[in-house]
Design a protein around this nucleic acid. Structure first.
Lengths: 366, 366
DNA sequence: CTGTTAGCGCGTTCAT
DNA sequence: ATGAACGCGCTAACAG
């Protein structure tokens, strides 16, 4: 086949093989392999050792990934599925987790392969066939992807995998934000600012039939625990949703005499929308209403001055997931652990060109 | 080594090899390979052919990626670098392009590997070593990543690659939005709505020393051409920047007697910010000022009713880039082409719960 | 301690 | 039309 022949020629021109290095250094391939891989028990004459290293450098030797994979049975590759609703919709949240995961993999010499999919739910068969092809050594999944069939396929195959987020099953290796403590601390901080009537605005995707996602349950639990401890309890009306509300409804939430004086919001976009609604109607932020944004630490720069924020590091989260997965792969035994990432303490977004601004009762302790 | 032994055992239990399929079907491995790969010149007795296929299915045979790669010299993998400022900052724009690229790769049987990096500028050595390791057959880069050293490394190596966006060099294979026509059409549409004084608000990252990015130059050229053709020219003051302006400055832009009556905005976030500024100061959108948002087609759902938008399909763009790269890989010859993706026609965002809203002088022709 | 050799699983010539 | 044999590049077992 012509293409094949041409290919080989091109490759043999630019690629240095282990054999070539060995010939150049006048030793056998085995020694080269052992020296370059730092195998123990090689007190090779320090002189030949240098000769080998120099030869490899001179010839720009790079081991063939496929040959090594074939020989060792390890592809040195990790897979991550894109069959996720948030990711498909462009969520930076998942992108940061993905990047953090990739960092961890790269630092350990692993590559990350993206599993193609336009679906929002993964197909178990995709995992199985990729697994059988021996192209990857482990999987990373976002929590929502861990449907019963996928979970079963992964567990029975014995392949290492890790979940990012809260899959609602503590027995599988996972890394998540500590959502309970996170929201609890948000409430605590707002209480320290003098607030007692604090609202928690959440997404409402699951309204109308869907089940409450596990991480939302934890957020609510943390909120209620905080309210009970620091504010003498809360009311159901203080848990509005973010997406079903119009500007008028948002205004109404904070206008009554017993209405909340602070609102915890779950995303940057919601924060911008709520803030716009308030400012457009003469409600001052933070003087009249304090908005506490739950955001990623990468997003804080986009927050308007006068907002409070409580940030978590999603990239670190993905990184941690990668390391957990790698520990499984390299030890061969499932860590069976559940890692919760703590958040930084809440803060005010102070940077402003308006020198008259000052956040009320500033506090910034650990 | 214990781990290695355990590994082999696990693999041999769950993986079916070509040899096993051959033994099960009582033929030689060569025939199995030919039949399963649909090689021409195989009028194998239709009966054995069936036997082979059934055997493969029964044993859940999946070819070993590394073995095939080693044998054919093709890894069936494409690489995409993450060393990009926008991507690192969480840009959904690049994420969609990435997903589109992954779609195209997956459809052709290729996997996509993510090159790890926390940097915003890629290192040429990363590409070269990955290339030498024979782990990928081609590269996809975002335009900003194509710095001189990287470009040189790729060109001299002869490895197939493609740029997404505008690298400012038409000789290399690339896929981009047709930014000239895009902005030209935006102006045309606004002119059709009755506007004559139209502003173009851009990012200002390159102000203060940086060079004007190639795609911004095209956007401006399209804007000016459109203004010259449909509005009798434009003024320099109608090209403000989006990030350096405060609310007051934005208000000022549209408040004078000769100020713009329409503003073209480059992103969803800017759109939200400008709109909030206007509404907060009693400037009605779109009655007083029309805002035309340049967004991705995936984002239109987030636009407030009353905004105009002009969307492009970033996912399709990434897809097209993937196909271009694949054509290079499979033909062996550089396509040396430059593909420009057209945008959909501008539209009003009409969906609203407020029945009193109606966009002025609606037009929606192709 | 080092060199020789046998695979890893697949694609592909060469005989038949 | 089909089977036997070789090689891709590397690692790991076995000799020396």
């Amino acid at each position: 086949m012509i293409a094949s022949t041409a290919l080989r020629k091109r490759l043999s021109k630019s690629m240095a093989t282990l054999r070539e290095v060995a010939e150049y250094a006048r030793v056998s391939t085995a020694v080269v392999s052992r020296v370059l891989n730092n195998k123990p028990g090689v007190w090779a004459s320090e002189e030949t050792r240098q000769r080998i290293i120099e030869a490899a450098e001179l010839l720009k030797y790079t081991p063939s990934a496929s040959a090594r994979a074939l020989s060792t049975g390890r592809a040195m590759q990790l897979a991550i599925s894109t069959a996720d609703a948030s990711l498909q919709s462009g969520s930076p949240t998942h992108l940061w987790q993905l990047l953090g995961f990739t960092d961890a993999a790269g630092a350990a010499g692993y590559r990350v392969v993206l599993m193609a999919s336009t679906e929002v739910q993964p197909d178990a068969e995709d995992f199985e066939s990729l697994l059988r092809s021996n192209a990857v050594d482990g999987f990373c999944l976002f929590a929502e992807q861990l449907t019963p069939p996928v979970r079963k396929a992964l567990l029975t195959s014995g392949i290492p995998f890790v979940a990012v987020g809260d899959p609602g099953d503590e027995s599988i290796p996972q890394v998540d934000i500590d959502n309970f403590a996170y929201t609890y601390e948000s409430v605590k901080w707002l209480a320290e600012q003098g607030h007692r009537r604090i609202a928690l605005a959440e997404f409402a995707e699951y309204e109308g039939g869907g089940a409450v996602p596990p991480h939302h349950a934890k957020i609510r639990a943390g909120y209620r625990a905080g309210m009970a401890h620091f504010c003498g309890g809360s009311e159901d009306a203080w848990e509005p949703t973010t997406r079903t509300k119009s500007t008028d409804e948002r205004i109404a939430y904070v206008s009554g005499p017993d209405s909340p004086t602070a609102v915890i919001l779950p995303s940057l976009l919601d924060t911008v929308v709520w803030e716009a609604s308030f400012r457009a109607h003469g409600i001052r932020v933070p003087e009249d209403v304090t908005l506490l944004a739950h955001v990623s630490s990468m997003e804080t720069v986009y927050l308007e001055p006068g907002l409070a924020y409580h940030a978590h590091d999603l990239r670190a989260m993905g990184h941690r997931a990668g390391r957990l997965l790698l520990s499984w792969i390299e030890s061969g035994v499932s860590p069976a652990s559940r890692i919760l990432i703590p958040a930084d303490p809440p803060q005010w977004r102070r940077l402003t060109t308006d020198p008259s601004f000052s956040a009320p009762t500033e506090r910034n302790d650990q």
